[in-house]
Write a protein that binds this DNA or RNA. Sequence first.
RNA 1: UGCCCGAUGGUGUAACGGUAGCACAGCAGACUCUGGAUCUGUUUGUCUAGGUUCAAAUCCUAGUCGGGCAACCA
Length: 555
Amino acid sequence: MNNSAPAAPETPAKNMHFIREIIAEDNRSGKYGGKVVTRFPPEPNGYLHIGHAKAICLDFGMALENNGVCHLRMDDTNPVKEDVEYTDSIKEDVRWLGFDWGPHYYHASDYFEQMYELACGLIRDGKAYVCELSSEEWKDYRGIPTEPGKESPFRNRSPEENLDLFQRMRAGEFPDGAKVLRAKIDMASPNLHLRDPVIYRILHTPHPHAGDKWCIYPMYDYAHPIEDAIEQITHSMCTLEFEVHRPLYDWVIQNCRLFPSQQIEFARLALTYTVMSKRKLLELVQQGLVNGWDDPRMPTLSGLRRRGVPPTAIREFCERVGITKYESLTDVALLEHCIRDDLNKTARRAMAVLDPLRVVIENAGEIPTAIRGINNPEDPAAGEREIPFGAELFIEREDFALVPPPKYFRLSPGKAVRLRNAGFLTCTGVEQDAAGNVTAVRGRFDPMDAPIKVKATIHWVPAHAATPVEVRLYDRLFNVPEPDADKNVDFKTHLNPNSLQVVQALVEPSLLAVQPGDRFQFERIGYFYAEPDSRPGAPVFNRTVTLKDSWKSGA
RNA sequence: UGCCCGAUGGUGUAACGGUAGCACAGCAGACUCUGGAUCUGUUUGUCUAGGUUCAAAUCCUAGUCGGGCAACCA
């Protein structure tokens, strides 16, 4: 059995973060007999985003690096919030990221019977009791952080009575909220989670996976350590907010006498110019501010996928971000760098003109009918393609300036540029409309070996063989680095009104033959992804990310 | 005003008692059939105050600042 992902490459230089060190130390000491078993335990109540990718890469990555296995487990202990609808997207996203859980796909709800038995064991040991305080009443008993709580009047019932009550809770004799099962720990603990936490509640709700078998459901703090222990998880990684829950995790392991899984907390990912909370992402979807969970502007994995981001770039990004206990805010520029770095090596080049300006070549008798274009200068194996040429072309409007600003290297009257893959174009004149707008550029063509020196090369498409296609130019969803920094200001006020611009671009003929999911670099513009729902012969391209532009016209 | 966790350039991270390094971003230059890529150089950093030590980012104490914890959510 092999848990390794076929697409996951062995990255040589890895950062020795604290979790790698804990695992290395456990392997040295033989704590788990050299075994490493991890798990990714999403709650099936929403879509995975790039923050989850960090956890997925960690969970699967640590297993992969140590010849271990990583389980995919739906943490479905709350039927009122969860739905099978999400399990498929979760599996798809994890697989797309490049990871394989092999046969190790589980549901927490499959352990409900064992959890119940273990709870009965706790009751018999006098370590759990049925409490009839309402959640309102409990607030008084629990106390506040600075003061100890009071013991529940039900705290000292006999194990027999507790067992009977708990069995009747399971049998459905009591309505929702009437009773709970509590762990009997310490009402004076400075850690609120140890003040007799609820471990079972009554919920007369059928379960999406377990069906209508249960009307009592275990709480996370009780269920999670049991899930881990049953699967013999050695290293159970979770985010920082569970740090204060760890004593309870250990309490359950110890008092139920289970496999000694250990919980290790790390900081979740935060990215500039986006929001990561499920609630806020849902708000964007529900209010129609984006086109669904997989809108290419969303930080969801399905959104990033549809934007054209390669999974390899996300994995590289997660590795570069590192693992610490410091709650950092990562610059989205790092993600964009990882995407460009990946696509630069792999994406075929093509030419597309987003904002066309007509060019008329005057010496039409001296031009070729087609030229050869290099498919990827970073990868000779990508070969070449033929691009039709003609006496009439389109170039990018911003590649021509009637009155060039200082340091402008592109086309202007009397000046020359290189036409990518083709030759030189010297501007001999312009055509203007009544308002003075340039409607066409007239020029002279010279072959590549002509003794002409230029400082710029521009892209073009042949007028007779160019086709208009829809291109969606995506930009950052928000226009401030921390949209949700201020609790008093609605994060949606920072939405970038120009996060999506749709244009009709003119593209070279080879682009009409694309398959949905193909990735390209439109030379000098950016990386583009052929929309999955493009119709045959009518491709739609999504801009994944722009090229870096070191020429700043404004500066 | 309780408990837990954290703090290294603009950002993310390394250094595990012995020269504060890497990456991203920025800036400058070289090169180039993409103002891309590549290469080179470069600006900026150990939260504060004490202590231990020949030597502290690292160990100790106190403080400051930030985050988390009072769901029958996960």
